[in-house]
Amino acid sequence: MNHDSYPDDYIRAILNGVKSIAMVGASPVNVRPSYFAFKYLAQRGYDMIPINPGHVGKSLLGKPFVASLADIGRPIDMVDIFRNSSHIMPVVEEALKLAPLPKVIWMQLGARDDAAAERAEAAGLKVVMNRCPKIEYGRLSSEISWMGVNSRTLSSKRAPVPTQGMRLSLNRTSVGGGETAASDRAAKNRNEPS
């Protein structure tokens, strides 16, 4: 998988396919990006599990914190990692010990570990790096268009009026990552030591 830019169909299949998401590094602090993403994904109907050993015994938006992936005690579809790049590998190693294996490893905006990605892909998992599932869901559904963001999708269909807690259709026509090629190129250049 080329991790510099993802085809919309790849992201769309992941977000349409997964139901349960364990968020490693979920924060109860309501100004942290992990809190935003957790809340949004829960509102869009995902079964969210907050993983953070420092908050066991407490809940995040009604979901009890779990200490580690191994402690979840039921199968999960996706591990969303809200940790710096240097802390990714141990989380991926832990995820690869789960039975059954999760289907997807997702690393948040700013996080990238190509070696960890290779390990996960070798075990048959899909990997997304340096992206936010909230932003991608908002983009493919065009909900993020309210913020003047280029969703890179088009649709001539009338969408239902969005209400709280509703799953939105992600199946709009993609304009393709090529339309923000400059941004993808810049990210790639940043990742390559000069």
Binding site: E143, S145, G148, N150, E179, A182
Partner: peptide, 30 residues
């Protein structure tokens, strides 16, 4: 934390269409 509209000084649905359109034509992100 959420996508949506508050007040037209900060954002407006008609203006948002214009914003996304010009971003798309220029190859920008937003």
């Amino acid at each position: 934390q959420a996508f949506g509209n508050i007040y037209t000084r900060i954002g407006n649905p008609t203006n948002a269409v214009l914003e996304e359109r010009v971003a798309a034509l220029e190859g920008g992100t937003a």
